[in-house]
Design a protein around this nucleic acid. Structure first.
Lengths: 206, 206
DNA sequence: TTGTCCCTGTAACAAATGTTACCCTTATTG
DNA sequence: CAATAAGGGTAACATTTGTTACAGGGACAA
């Protein structure tokens, strides 16, 4: 595997270490990578695919927080690695995904040793904080129809496909809403001509 | 100033460096420490007092994200230090506050040099991510009356005083709601006996 | 084929929250 | 003192979102 083409920021020495120490893990679409309350002992570097991170409350209500793309890692799990605390989030594979798992005890060692590792980790924290801010913004400042639009657009970008294979219920779950409400809004958008609805599919118009 | 009693985790060498390099800054209640879009060149370590961090959208609508207490720093600003990007948030002093300002170029140097600095910085990221998660949870899963209760309880803890000097409008702003709605809910809570309302004051019952 | 489950559409209604408008009181300032 | 601004109470109404209920159609297995 050519890591340097995927995660291009690392020094040669660090790349070699990663290839030595890390183990490849393949995860299928829909699989749960990290679950709530789990103890995390490996830093997952995404080399291919995409993962969605969701939050859940005591009642089982869910909210999609953000997606983590290849070339990144999940800052939420980084914390757990450092602190040996339990996961506050659930990470689900959005599509088939390949990861390199690094034992968490290398975290601190590499931080002192490799500048590029520090940059990588901090960039990831940065991204995650910004994604969380975006999530807060959406939930706080946007109405549901705007959130829905954003959601669909993100999906299109992520999957590089204007025809989404998804049900209204799945959307409702991601947005912490209810199926009826989402169907209602989607129907309105179809009437506006911004998309076309089919069974299990939503086609976004150009 | 006895830093080691305030931020007890640092090694002696690092403490000495901080005392040499850092400059003390005193900020008054209500002052804006960092504003949206600002470039940040100093890492602010809080040694006394408390700062509230808020988010604002294009329309000027606001939302309180969390409070940062003494012994901590604002991870949002850390990012800016590392990345030289602009602040995504506004930081306002909740009470009179004392800070040590560290030029941001020491950030990376100390990360490679001092284990305790790494721990400190990562703990702060951890805290900030968790605070943001809490903010998301509140806005997403709680009704306004529950958010209001949480808000009041946090204030009480923070200020160590059951009698809050605050107006309904200020609360409404922090919760991104409107004054009328907050007044309504507060009145209901007064009728329930959970608090007592006066002009500019709310007294939380034990 | 029949039965069952899942997906979607729709209507009627309920709850939560926001908006507007108006009034009264208190504090502040000239 | 009068004038003004700020804080708060309340009512009436609008909007957004959620809930419940039900019906029709497609997918799929027995």
């Amino acid at each position: 595997m050519n890591l340097d083409t995927i995660i291009p920021v690392f020094e040669a020495n660090l790349l070699a270490e990663i290839e030595n120490i890390g183990t490849i893990r393949e995860v299928k679409k829909g699989d749960i990578l990290v679950d709530l309350g789990e103890q995390i002992k490996f830093i997952p570097l995404i080399v291919k695919g995409s993962v969605k991170v969701v939050r859940e409350d005591e009642n089982g209500d869910e909210l999609l927080l953000y997606f983590v793309d290849y070339g990144n890692t999940c800052a939420m799990t980084l914390n757990c690695c450092m602190e040996n605390t339990k996961s506050e989030i659930r990470a689900i594979c959005e599509i088939d995904t390949t990861l390199i798992m690094i034992p968490s005890n290398y975290m601190d060692r590499w931080l002192s040793q490799y500048k590029s590792w520090r940059v990588f980790i901090f960039n990831n924290f940065q991204s995650r904080l910004n994604e969380l801010l975006k999530a807060v913004d959406s939930v706080t400042f946007l109405k549901l129809d705007e959130r829905l639009e954003r959601y669909l657009n993100e999906k299109v970008l992520l999957l590089k496909n204007k025809t989404l294979k998804i049900t209204h219920l799945e959307i409702a779950t991601d947005l912490n809403s209810s199926r009826v409400v989402i169907s209602r809004l989607l129907k309105k958008m179809e009437k506006n001509g911004t998309l076309y609805l089919g069974r299990n599919t939503i086609q976004i118009n150009p």
